[in-house]
Design a protein around this nucleic acid. Structure first.
Length: 788
RNA sequence: GCGGACGUGGCGGAACUGGUAGACGCGCAGCGUUGAGGUCGCUGUGGGAUCAAAUCCUGUGGAAGUUCGAGUCUUCUCGUCCGCACCA
């Protein structure tokens, strides 16, 4: 039964060289792809380049070249390296996102998103990376630092383009359940990132003003315990009531707090009235209120929230208990009976929440509200080397998103990268145009799109990379989702969430029948290596280290080397192994075997010299085996080979590739021990066909010799009769403990087999003078004898 | 703090829906082939008792439970790794 299989590995950033992580990734995918081809499936297995991005700009400055030249030459080099890996890739589907032929279609998609209301522009407080001089998405800020530069991210108010990913928050969350073949870990990470919580939005009236302050809470049941209000320093209210100087003063005070968890605040000297009680609550600016969650404002209920409690203690604010608990348990945030709360007294938490929300709704001071942590995706980047956003601005500040007929907006080649910030800004001959529609002077958008936009739909473009429009609807419906998507876990949120959003957005715009881009996700583990250091802390590459008289020495200088723990291969720690060098000394087949042999593919793989050597020994052994003179094979051999075919197939389908290697050893151990050599028999062909996806080069060279062909045609069909094993070693237990086994035929009669079992010495000794209470016979599996 | 994954020999790891724990590999030890060995072949290898063997005991982080039977299921506990983290 042939079907369509789309097998995809995450495409690489063309940084210059292929590293071992790529090799592992692509070998895993390649084994799948080759297997499916042998099964007669119509396989799509493309490769391309995530070719826009900042490193190219930095490298261009450093090496006095151009981002485009640098990128294209890297692509050329890496393609040569990839081709040495014997990967069965559809190179005619190749794309590079920096090519006009890719990004012009992306500009079209941008226009469609805009028309659908899914792309919009707004002033927003954004994450500014001061080193890269660009805005970052929330997903690209880790621990308050830029994901690439590690620089402390600043907040800036800028007018930016956004994609409305929040429109799909609920669906992105719910559809995680449909992704049965995704790792739970990734799904949980996305779930937490989307961060749905159900609560209420409450309007607090600002005293002596006709304005209101909106606050989101998941605990409206504690409203009677509210004793203050706190807002984030970036809340609009702050700018309204304080001048810039005071705001800056507070900001610097906040940034001086050593421990980020220390709670400090400044009294804004304004009050809000309590929505139910007749009292006023003071409003503070507090450092612990997040501006990017909820409304950027909270009501403080010190008795039942740790942070509010700490804050109230510090600023001597009242603490009112409204959930029944012991005083020493304060702050208590658990469930309990509501007290001190007039209309809610005696209710449980959930009852109280329900009742108070309905009260708010009726009196129009609040309502039920579902809140998500997920924010809209800011896609503007103040960088040159990216996809131009197809928008122009007029002198009056208004803008126009271009028509599709005005595309493409080409990225100009001649730029001065040495200038500060985005070099497009200084390129007036590109930036300034006369709008063909209005004949007015206009300026092109100089921000470019986040490169994660490029990678959000590349798997679609692979389906037809030559089409004059972004994609063909029928083809998408026919060939998507990707059946197996293989890559690193580091994209668990960013790329994989954005791609899911894109698929859904395109579905809605174009009436596609696909909801999710990737049916199965497989995250491969990192490759690690021991680290080596000299006594003065200098990292040393593994190839420079030699073992002499039990001591590790640097081969050139004879310095003593300290061995450190196994860590992810990284340039900075120099614990890297270069694929090119390994290919030279061990060949591609041994390398492919080692990539999958020692650990399951989703776990870490430790690189060892012994490991690659034993992989090499295995390829030598296989080659040697098939060069021996043929001997005759018996039925048992045929059965063993049938089991081998069955296991290899099962293990490839499960991504248990390490077990495939074990299967290979098991088979050859058996054949060689019994001195059965198959030479150019059909059985050889069967074995070699199964080995072909794993070690294509070697198996082809063997088949040229034995069969005078360089092709393997078809994965062997399994003969179930040969898999069936008639004779078994039946384990016998007494009191559930293994005693011995007895050889027998399947389908034995219990009373017959028991007769022979009771004759066995080991059993006889144990049951003498005992009464047999019960015999449990799990037919063809085990017999357990219970005695008193 | 919240969430997730996991804990099996000297090491990497096998063990399908509970049914012979340690497949396979690495390492180690012994023997052999070879002028040589990043080679190859054979044998052994969870721990303990016994000169040795047959044999016996014990054994999947720890404690308890369910079951004829638990690495696998349940509860508690300890530990490791990863992700998120002042999320109102």
């Amino acid at each position: 039964m042939s079907s369509k299989k789309y097998i995809l590995e995450m495409f690489p950033y063309p940084s210059g060289n292929i590293h071992m992580g790529h090799v592992r990734n692509y070998v895993i995918g390649d084994i799948c792809a080759r297997y499916h081809k042998l099964k007669g499936d119509q396989v799509i297995h493309p490769m391309g380049w995530d070719a826009f991005g900042l490193p190219a700009e930095n490298a261009a400055i450093q090496f006095k070249t151009h981002p485009r030249d640098w990128t294209l030459s890297n692509i050329k080099n890496m393609k040569t390296q990839l081709q040495k890996l014997d990967l069965d890739l559809d190179w005619d589907r190749e794309i590079a996102t920096c090519n006009e032929d890719y990004y012009r279609h992306q500009q079209e998609l941008f226009i469609d998103l805009y028309k659908a209301g899914l792309a919009y522009k707004k002033d927003a407080l954004v994450n500014w990376d001061p080193v890269d001089q660009t805005v970052l998405a929330n997903e690209q800020v880790i621990d308050g630092k830029g994901w690439r530069t590690g620089a402390q991210v600043e907040k800036k108010n800028l007018s930016q383009w956004f994609f409305k990913i929040t429109h799909y928050a609920e669906e992105l969350l719910n559809d995680l359940e449909k992704l049965k073949l995704w790792p739970d870990k990734v799904k949980t990470m996305q779930k937490n990132w989307i961060g749905k919580s159900i609560g209420a939005e409450i309007k607090f009236k600002i005293v002596d003003s006709d304005k209101y302050l909106n606050i989101f809470t998941t605990r409206p049941d504690t409203i009677y315990g509210a004793t203050f209000i706190a807002v984030s320093i970036n809340h609009p209210l702050v700018n309204e009531f304080l001048d810039e100087e005071s705001v800056n003063k507070i900001k610097s005070e906040f940034s001086e707090v050593d421990d980020e968890k220390d709670k400090i605040g400044v009294d804004l000297k304004i009050n809000c009235s309590h929505p139910i009680l007749n009292k006023d609550l003071p409003v503070y600016v507090a450092n612990f209120v997040l501006d990017n969650y909820g409304e950027g404002a909270i009501f403080g209920c010190p008795a039942h929230d740790e942070r509010d409690y700490e804050f109230a203690k510090k600023y001597k604010l009242p603490i009112i208990k409204v959930i029944d608990c012991k005083d020493e348990d304060l702050p208590y945030s658990g469930d309990g009976e509501v007290i001190n709360s007039e209309m809610l007294n005696g209710l449980s938490k959930n009852e109280a929440i329900k009742k108070v929300i309905s009260y708010f709704t009726i009196n129009q001071i609040g309502k039920e509200k579902i809140n998500y942590k997920l924010r809209d995706w800011g896609v503007s980047r103040q960088r040159y080397w990216g996809c131009p956003i197809p928008v122009i601005y007029y002198e009056d500040g208004s803008y126009r998103v271009l028509e599709k007929s005005e595309l493409p907006v080409l990225l100009p080649y001649d730029v001065n990268l040495e200038s500060k910030g985005n070099s497009l800004l200084n390129l007036d001959k590109w930036r300034v145009i006369i709008c063909p529609k209005t004949n007015k002077r206009a300026y092109r958008e100089t921000d470019t799109l986040d490169t994660f936009v490029d990678s959000s739909w590349y798997y679609i473009r692979f389906l037809n990379n030559k089409l004059g429009k972004p994609f063909d609807t029928e083809q998408i419906n026919d060939l998507l989702p990707v059946d197996k998507y293989i890559g690193g876990i580091e994209h668990a949120i960013l790329h994989l969430l954005y791609s899911r959003f894109f698929m859904k957005a395109l579905r809605d715009i174009y009436n596609l029948k696909v909801d999710e881009p990737f049916e199965q996700l497989f995250t491969q583990g990192m490759i690690t290596h021991k680290t080596y250091k000299t006594s003065n802390g200098e990292w040393v590459m593994p190839k420079e280290v030699v073992l002499k008289d039990g001591q590790l020495l640097r081969n050139k200088t004879k310095e003593l080397i300290e061995e450190g723990p196994c860590e992810k291969m990284s340039k900075s720690k120099k614990n890297v192994i270069e694929p090119d060098e390994i290919l030279k000394s061990y060949g591609i087949d041994a390398t492919r075997i080692f990539m999958i042999s020692d650990s399951p593919p989703d776990r870490e793989l430790e690189w060892t010299d012994e490991g690659i050597q034993s992989s090499k020994n295995l390829t030598n052994r296989i080659e040697r085996y098939f060069s021996k003179e043929m001997t005759s094979a018996d039925l048992d051999t045929e059965k063993k080979i049938e089991i081998f075919v069955y296991n290899i197939e099962k293990n490839i389908l499960n991504f248990s590739l390490n077990k495939c290697i074990a299967d290979i050893y098991t088979l050859f151990n058996y054949l060689e021990r019994k001195k059965i050599y198959l030479n150019n028999s059909n059985l050889s062909n069967k074995i070699l066909t199964c080995l072909f996806p794993i070690i294509p080069k070697l198996t082809i060279s063997i088949s040229k010799n034995l069969f005078k062909t360089d092709k393997y045609e078809k994965w062997p069909d399994i003969n179930d009769d040969l898999l069936y094993e008639d004779r078994i070693n039946l384990p016998i237990q007494i009191q559930g403990k293994m005693i011995t086994t007895i050889e027998t035929k399947k389908g034995y009669l219990e009373k017959d087999i028991l007769k022979s079992i009771y004759q066995l010495d080991k059993i006889k000794n144990k049951i003498e003078n005992k009464r047999i209470l019960k015999v449990i016979n799990v037919q063809d599996k085990i017999i357990n004898i219970i005695i008193n």
